[in-house]
Amino acid sequence: MTGARPLPRLVATDLDGTLLRSDGSVSDRTRRALAATEAAGTEVVFVTARPPRWLHALADLVGGHGRVICLGGAAVWDLGSGAALEMCGFDDGVVRSLVADLRAAVPGAGLAVETADGPAFDPWFPDGEPHLDRRLRGAPVEGALRAGDPVAKLLVVRPGTPAQGFGVVQRGDVHDAAQEEFFERVRGVVDGRAELHYSGAAGLAELLPPGVTKDVALARWCDRLGVEARDVWAFGDMPNDLPMLRWAGRGHAVANAHPDVLACADAVVPGNDDDGVAAALEAVLDAAAPSDGHTPSAPLSR
């Protein structure tokens, strides 16, 4: 990673554990900083492991473009239309073999799949979304694997993970021996057929199609806009953010990040509960502002 100019052309930020506070909220300070960044001509794009249905509450934060890189890089989603602009999925035979092998190697694990048409869950998958249609949990996920509806993400929950607190993002400095042992078992099953991601959610392993990572999706998005890596700032907290932080011209870790992310970052900003992303954006906007205090608007060409 190399240094970036004072005002980047694009800011890419993870959400949970990075931009959002620990309770999932967006502070007023962060809202103001994002709006000021867009007004200054710098596009802000969220790059998140979240599925599309978890993004609607953030629609007012995505500026004029209305798009989010989600599912860990497997999709670019248009929040206005509620449709995928891009979707990368597993080959049908590969995802079926992965499901069968995971059943054998990790007995009792709960599986879920994310497709363009929505999710499906094993009946015993922890119910962190009680508002969803109960039919999505009516049978094991094998019944949801249909040709022509590619799976963008396969989720694996460690056996015995309680529903209470499931999906809560752990602090990056938390050592979880059970999680690490679970990951090793899943890694042994994957054997090059998927990208194994850890976004910080306790008890959860996330499998994406081969070659699908946050940096690949972000690079493709920036190529569309004519933005080079050196003109991108990225923010993250977990190992699945590392490729994006390394690719960007300047990679930032929040103070609560995983030790591997802290070691990799070009800069460390305050933690997510202290609005670290906002603090970094405020500083660069102040440095770029003319002496009269007026920050001109120079919209990024689409």
Rank of each mutant, 00 (worst) to 15 (best):
T2Y: 06
V174I: 11
R29K: 12
T42W: 10
E195N: 09
A84Q: 11
V47D: 02
D16A: 02
V169M: 03
V95W: 00
L111M: 14
A33F: 00
A112N: 00
A253M: 02
P6F: 05
A280H: 00
L61T: 02
G82T: 05
S301Q: 14
M87S: 14
L154Y: 06
N272T: 08
A112I: 04
R53K: 14
S301D: 10
V261D: 01
D78M: 08
F121E: 05
V151G: 04
G143H: 15
V113A: 09
R137V: 14
G271L: 11
E206G: 03
D231T: 04
V189Q: 01
G82E: 07
G128A: 14
R224W: 10
L111W: 05
G80L: 13
P210C: 07
D274P: 10
R135W: 12
A33E: 00
Y198Q: 12
G63E: 13
P119T: 10
F46S: 06
G24Y: 11
K153V: 06
G63F: 05
V174D: 05
R187T: 11
Q164C: 10
L204P: 01
D149S: 15
A289W: 04
E114H: 02
G89C: 03
D260F: 03
R134M: 15
R9Q: 11
R146C: 15
V151I: 06
A283I: 15
V94Q: 09
A35C: 06
R134T: 12
D231F: 13
A120S: 15
G80P: 01
R230D: 15
A104K: 10
L196N: 02
T213M: 08
V95Q: 00
T13E: 12
A263T: 05
L7K: 07
T2I: 13
G143D: 14
R50E: 06
V216L: 09
V151K: 02
E129N: 13
F46Q: 04
L15N: 08
H294M: 09
P270Q: 08
P210G: 12
G24S: 10
D191T: 11
L55C: 11
G188N: 07
L34D: 00
V186K: 00
D223K: 01
A144N: 09
V261C: 01
A35P: 06
A287Y: 03
P296W: 15
D275N: 05
A287Q: 13
I69K: 04
A147R: 07
R29H: 08
A12K: 05
W221F: 10
A104F: 07
G110A: 09
